[in-house]
Design a protein around this nucleic acid. Sequence first.
DNA 1: GCGAGCGTTAGT
DNA 2: ACTAACGCTCGC
Length: 655
Amino acid sequence: MTRDTQFPCDPAGVCMRCKSTPPPEESLTCGTCVTPWHVSCLSSPPKTLESTLQWLCPDCSGETDALPVSGVAAGYGSVGSDLVVAIHEIEADDSLSAEEKAKKRQQLLSGKAVVHEDDEEEKKRKSKGKKTVDEDVLSHFHCSFCMQLLQKPVSTPCGHNACLKCFLKWMGQGNRSCGTCRSVVPESMISNPHINLSIVSAIRLARLSKRVDASTSKVVHVISNEDRPDKAFRTDRAKKLGNANASSGKIFVTIPRDHFGPITAEYDPVRNQGVLVGESWKGRLTARQWGVHFPLVSGIAGQTSYGAQSVVLAGGYEDDEDHGEWFLYTGSGGRDLSTRNLRTNVQGFDQVFLKFNAALRLSCQLGYPVRVVRSSKDIHSAYAPEGELLRYDGVYRIEKCWIKVGVQGSYKVCRFLFIRCDNEPAPWTSDEHGDRPRPLPNVPELNMATNLFERKESPSWDFDEGEGRWRWMKPPPASRKAVNNVKDPEERKFLRKAMTSARSNTMRARLLKEFKCQICQQVMTNPVTTPCAHNFCKACLVSKFAGKTLMRERSRGGRTLRAQKNVMKCPCCPTDIAEFIQNPQVNREVAEVIEKLKKQEEEDNAEPVDEGECSGTSHEEETLPVSGDAEQPKKRIKLDIDAAVSATVVESDMK
DNA sequence: GCGAGCGTTAGT
DNA sequence: ACTAACGCTCGC
């Protein structure tokens, strides 16, 4: 999920979005708040000279009020976002007045009308009297006039903050002093007030964090994911013991576990391309990391009353019959697991349409696309990948399912007829295009089948003749997977604590960075804001001009001339701040926020994390793989003549 | 190469 | 809480 957040340039002229310093020709100053912005980082930069001259920044034009809509479901046109659906629902509700609708819309967009769980969390937090970092920041930055959260904040030399509008209004009434303390405000600030960008950034960051909290806290596995290493790993101790799966790694895609259909680019923040047909992975752990098939052992991913999302063909069941574009799959269960060794196990009893088998049957009934992964372990299949790999082969639909007696003789197995229905060609073909609807194959064993089930309703995923591609003809099922997948309550508690702590730590660090003194580059102590809206430690600024007096005595040839004013340039810009230097006042609101953030940091650092609580997870391994070392899937390279010539880099699975 | 012996995850 | 699940590694 991407969030289109726009940021202006900071007081040093560095774009807060791309962190570069734009040259003057790429910098645009807002006509209203005189804030500089980096043109190439604007989502909708002005197109004509005229509009450039009258340009209003996203803050002043209200552009940022609109939350970007994301998370459009795969293949289902432009509809499908929960947010869009919710807004449509509000609009369609005749029982609401226009005003009520507007209010509901606003609540929705500001994240207030989100999940009940979060409300409960919120209540708990409030009852405990604990505020989050962002709440704390927001609560500090009130305008001294309107008492609302600062909008385009300006800071007076006496250290008080106000909205630009309120400030201008006050001055427009003929006042020449601070609305809070009645100190005189210099004429230069009245005629040319500057926005205090440090405060702007702090408020933006705090707001952003609130939004992120509200929108992601429901999908906990994505958050807890961040504590995981990029690679799945095993500890040395675990290896010695033969403990295969000490920990699975981070999930790189943003789909929930119960996501149906292809994994498209919008779910792939890492590469922004989605999972392509033909991509392969070393093992189940890495295949899981790219979201193609979540279970580590089970061949079927699914839920009884919801449907099955994916299957693996690994040759574990002798009855499987693979014809590439279609195959016969055997259900799960019915095995004698007494020795707990799955691969050597034999059928011990009949399979029934329960659990995963029921999930597959439901996907058959509703015509859902089921992701198919082939494993090189399937030595009987001509279509299995070579090398020790798992390969994503695209989506298939289950057309029929039934029960037959398995090849092992005395026990019944569930059978599923899978037919390919993907928009990308299968890895074993040289076709340019994906599948076209194909007739049902002849399946002799159907003559012996019992409990035959066929789809009667129209399939959810079907071929659109007009568009010439497969797509969701009915909306894909909304994800039901919301809550933490960590079941152990202790582990859950620990993760939750670690998560919130980590998140607020980052937020705190980022906020503190926004309050850096432009002279010592440290977080400011006794912050002062110049009339040109640059922030420094009081001590840094004063010492910078130590020894310099406001007036300069001049003498020539023994004669004393009229004293001349000393020019003292702001360390960040050419503004003369000599007057301000005479009596710089600490911006108390900024100071308080900094102090609180620092205090929280100290408290957190003093509180040791009990590692014992999370034994067996990431802390055992000494040599944890680091970020950037993420194992990316291999894309199978299609061999054409040109490629073959330069194919010294052909992937290992092509030998 | 086989299989013991373990591991994690998630459905129910 | 229980347990099934087309896995994984190491030692024999």
